[in-house]
């Protein structure tokens, strides 16, 4: 079994050899390590992408908009992902962002996961029929459990999920009520000796 440290180093070097800068290679090394740590097929997709990149042209999307159409060209998952991560602070006020035709979209995933941590919000990623929920780069929930290589995602959607409770107020109140059973009723004499007691608050 390869260690995550080996996966990081080899992915970084391969990325540099594939024509990216060292700084981008460092990002990809960390990303592939993250994918493998979360049980997603990072090494496999990276290898497939770099083989494909020798024969095909991928567009470098640098400025991210609400809708990023690319009907005739496949988007490079590394540069698209990096632009998304770099611009996340200006994008977070949006509700959702759409992309068309991202090549090897599994490689886009760790950038979105890291962006979730940067802005402190959950993000939902839809890659055609596959869904990924990112929880602040701590974990990823997904209906994608395969070890396959995905060459192209026709429609990709990133949805920003506002920080809000996942439960009804009623659920909270009921649970709170139950938690009160761990409290002890204070006697009158104890109340008089608590912090601030006995003083004139206007002194």
């Amino acid at each position: 079994m390869k260690s995550l440290s080996e996966i990081d180093v080899i992915s970084k070097r391969a990325t540099k050899a594939a024509g990216y800068s060292w700084g981008i290679a460092e990002e990809v090394g960390k990303n592939i390590k993250l994918l493998e740590l979360f049980g997603l097929p990072g090494v496999k997709n990276l290898n497939a992408f770099y083989k494909s990149k020798k024969k095909n042209v991928y567009k470098n999307l640098k400025l991210i908009n609400i809708e990023n159409k690319s009907p005739n060209e496949k988007l490079c998952p590394v540069i698209t992902g990096l632009s998304f991560l770099d611009q996340i602070k200006t994008l977070e006020s949006l509700e959702e962002i759409k992309f068309e035709n991202i090549g090897y979209p599994i490689l886009f995933i760790p950038f979105v996961s890291r962006a979730s941590e940067v802005i402190g919000k959950r993000l939902l990623l839809k890659v055609d029929d596959k869904k990924f929920l990112f929880n602040f780069n701590i974990n990823i929930y997904s209906n994608f459990l395969s070890n396959e290589t995905i060459e192209l995602a026709k429609n990709v959607l990133v949805k920003f999920i506002d920080n809000s409770d996942s439960f009804e107020q009623k659920d909270w109140e009921e649970l709170y009520k139950l938690s009160e059973n761990t409290f002890v009723e204070e006697s009158e004499s104890l109340k008089k000796t608590g912090a601030g007691a006995g003083l004139n608050d206007n002194d």
């Binding site: 700084g23 460092e26 632009s83």
Partner: peptide, 10 residues
Amino acid sequence: LFQNSELRHV
């Protein structure tokens, strides 16, 4: 960084 990705590491 759009234009200067070769300096990202520094």
